[in-house]
Structure formats: structure tokens, C-alpha cells
Write a protein that binds this DNA or RNA. Structure first.
Lengths: 210, 210
DNA sequence: CAACTATACAAACGATCGGTCGTTAAGATA
DNA sequence: TATCTTAACGACCGATCGTTTGTATAGTTG
């Protein structure tokens, strides 16, 4: 094995640093997060980072990957345990709301903060971010298409349109809940998608009533 | 008059600086925007700012007010020219989409970027921002309530719920259009709100078909 | 054991940050 | 004309930024 004690220790601290970095970046962004503060937060020294990453951009790129992995484990994976169709689609929305509601990340959502930061700034971070978001939206669209194919959503439904609405209503929770009452926006986001799906679903037993 | 030529010149440069500041902040945020770059962008010197503002936070607060005034003129005012009711509600949504689509601000939306920046950071800027956003949401709710009172929306409609959805679908345009195809998200946002309102509106002639 | 590698550190670098200070030029006031 | 006010400036300050350098140390390999 190539993972001897040396590398294992390195990987451990690398993971710990990335976890802290994603958490802090969900609050202050990837650029607002300085190496100095990240160092004190992880209990290490500033220069120690350059043993793991060539420069700050490499750390930012790995942070994006780490956040995407976390999202896959805590949002996508729970939804995939629900049966395919409209139930899986709604389970995805609920898993996202649970992720926000539990406060897994101190800033609510890593991707929301970092998108707002990098959407107008060309570079490798923006490109990787755009790829991650594109994959996420394509995943939603795939679930919508599956639900239509299974006959659990009306064929008149526009896949891209419905996916856009579900994503928008979920994302908005972050914007609203940070400056105002978070619980209310969670309820609104859940009900909005639920009513939208129930209106399109021929079998009312597949979705909760409220 | 207290506005002699001296003060008038000061007011002019003050307005010019604020306009530049709001435009730049819509891209890089209010903190990411440094006084040095703002100085070169306005063709003045860095120290010249401190003749107008005590420190950076005062400039940020005035920038928030300036952006709110711009929003009132370019989004709220056009909507108020439409007849009260569901038409005014949809006119508000369309005015917002036009504001985004025309690219009035280089970053798309000042409030989106600055909210993401300050929502977790206590202070005067966050407070003024929260107040502006609360007034905006209350304004949407007022238009919804008016439409219901006028009999142009079903009484079963939940005011806060519908206002949340309209706001979410509009705001999402900024997130989507920056990293992906902007035209598509404008169409999705428009259709989503239009269909939602048409489903609740007893008079189909009040709203466009598509 | 010796040679090597990877982790981690302290110290310092130039650049840039927000902010201060003293000064200049021009309009307003008397 | 003499006096006062204010917009605007250049030069500079301490702090912090990302980054480089050199070094000490612990684990791996021959």
C-alpha cells in the first residue's frame, strides 16, 4: 500500500483542513476566507498549507470538490434511497431542505455563497463551479424525466421548466433564512414544490398531503 | 439655497462615485470592492473619498441606499404604472426580469451579491440590507393581497406563500444566468410565475397567454 | 544504520488593504 | 480685497494578504 503512516497523517490533516475550509467558505466565501484565519481555525500554521497545495487556488478547487462530495452524500444519496419517480424527486427536495435546516454548514450553503462570489470572475474555480452546478441541474432534470416516463407526472410537464422551479424554490431558502425567519422559508419552499408536484401527479397517494 | 457651486460639484462626484460603487459591488461585493480600485474606476484619488464619507462602512451604507433607490425607480415604479391587481403583480415580476435582462448592473443584481456577502456578518450594513429586503418582500405581499381583495386571485391563495414563490423564481435568474444560459432562465422565470398566477386568476384576459 | 521523503514550522517578502495627515486650489462670504 | 470653507490630492502609516525560503522532525526505505 502507498498509504503508510506518513501519508495517512497527511491525508487526515488534509481532510480536516478541507472540512474547515468548506464550512468557513459557506460563510465568508472562498476568497474572503484567508489562509491566516484558516490556519488558526485548524490549529496549524499558515505556511503548512503549501505542503498540501501549491497555492490558494488549488485549495479552493479541492474545497469545491469536497463540498460537492458532501452534497452527494447528504442530499443526493438519501434521495436515491426513495423509489424512482415523483417520490424520489420530492425526496431530493426534502433532503436539501433538511441539509439547510440542520445547519450542517455554518453559512447554510457552500455553493450559494461561492457562486455569488465567482459567477463574474473567470478562472479555474468558476469553471469547476459551473461544472458542478450543471451536473446538479442535469440530475434534477433526469429525476423529472424519470417521473414523467413512469407516468407519475403529467406528460404536459416541461422538464427544464419544472427542474428550474424546484431548484429555485430550494435555493431561495438560503437567501431568505439568513436575513429573516428561517423556519418560515423552509415551510414555504416545501409547500411550493409539494403543491406543484401534486398538481401534476395523477396518483395522489404518492405524495404527502401537506 | 445651501447648494452653491461648491456643494453642487461635491454632490455630482458623490453621485458618480456611488453609481460606480453599486455597479462594481454587483460584481465583486461591497467588501471585495476596494477603495483603490473604486478610485481608479472613478478617476479620482483614494483619499478623496474621505471628504465625502467618514470610512468605508459609510460608503457601503450609502451604496445600499443608492441601489434601493435605483430598484425603486427601475422595478417598482414601472409596476405601479400598471393597474392594481394581478396585472400589477405580474408587471412587477416582468420589470425585475427586464432589469436583469438589460444588464443594467454589470453583476446582474446588487442585492443578490451583497446579501450573500453580508447575511452572516453582523453590523450596520447587514441591518440596512435586511430592512431593505424586508420592505421589498412586504411590498410583494401587499400587491398579492391587493390582487386577492380585487377578486383577481383566488381567495384560497396564501399571501406569504405566493409572494415567496414569486420572489424566489425571480431571484433565481441571477444565480442561473451568470453561470449558464441567461436567456433560458429568463424564460423559465417568466413562465413559472405566469402559469402560477393564471392558475389562480378567475379572469384569463388579465394576463398574457404566454 | 544511513539516506531519503514528507509534514510542518517560523520568519520574512512584496503587494495591497483601509485609513490618516498636511497641503493646495477654488468657490463663497464679508 | 481678506477670510473662511470644502473638494481633492500625494505621501505615508500599520495591518494583513498570499507566498517564498530555510529548517527541524518524524516516518519510510535501502
Amino acid at each position: 500500500m502507498t498509504q503508510d503512516g506518513r501519508r495517512l497523517r497527511g491525508l487526515r490533516s488534509r481532510e480536516a483542513i478541507l472540512e474547515q475550509a468548506v464550512g468557513l467558505a459557506s460563510v465568508e466565501g472562498l476568497d474572503g476566507l484567508s489562509l491566516g484565519r484558516l490556519a488558526t481555525a485548524t490549529g496549524t500554521s499558515k505556511s503548512g498549507f503549501f505542503a498540501h497545495w501549491r497555492d490558494k487556488e488549488q485549495l479552493q478547487l479541492d474545497a469545491v470538490d469536497w463540498a460537492a462530495r458532501q452534497w452527494a452524500e447528504r442530499v443526493v444519496a438519501p434521495a436515491m434511497r426513495a423509489p424512482a419517480g415523483v417520490r424520489r424527486l420530492f425526496a431530493l427536495h426534502e433532503a436539501r431542505l433538511t441539509f439547510y435546516g440542520e445547519g450542517v454548514l455554518p453559512g447554510g450553503c457552500f455553493f450559494f455563497t461561492v457562486q455569488a462570489e465567482f459567477d463574474d470572475r473567470p478562472g479555474a474555480v468558476r469553471d469547476r463551479l459551473a461544472r458542478a452546478m450543471r451536473e446538479w441541474q442535469e440530475f434534477i432534470r433526469r429525476l423529472v424525466a424519470q417521473a414523467i416516463a413512469a407516468g407519475e407526472l403529467a406528460e404536459s410537464a416541461d422538464v427544464a421548466q419544472l427542474a428550474y422551479e424546484i431548484d429555485a424554490l430550494g435555493e431561495m431558502v438560503i437567501i431568505h433564512s439568513r436575513l429573516h425567519d428561517g423556519a418560515a422559508s423552509l415551510v414555504h419552499a416545501r409547500r411550493a414544490v409539494l403543491q406543484r408536484l401534486r398538481a401534476l401527479c395523477p396518483d395522489p397517494t404518492l405524495l404527502p398531503e401537506d
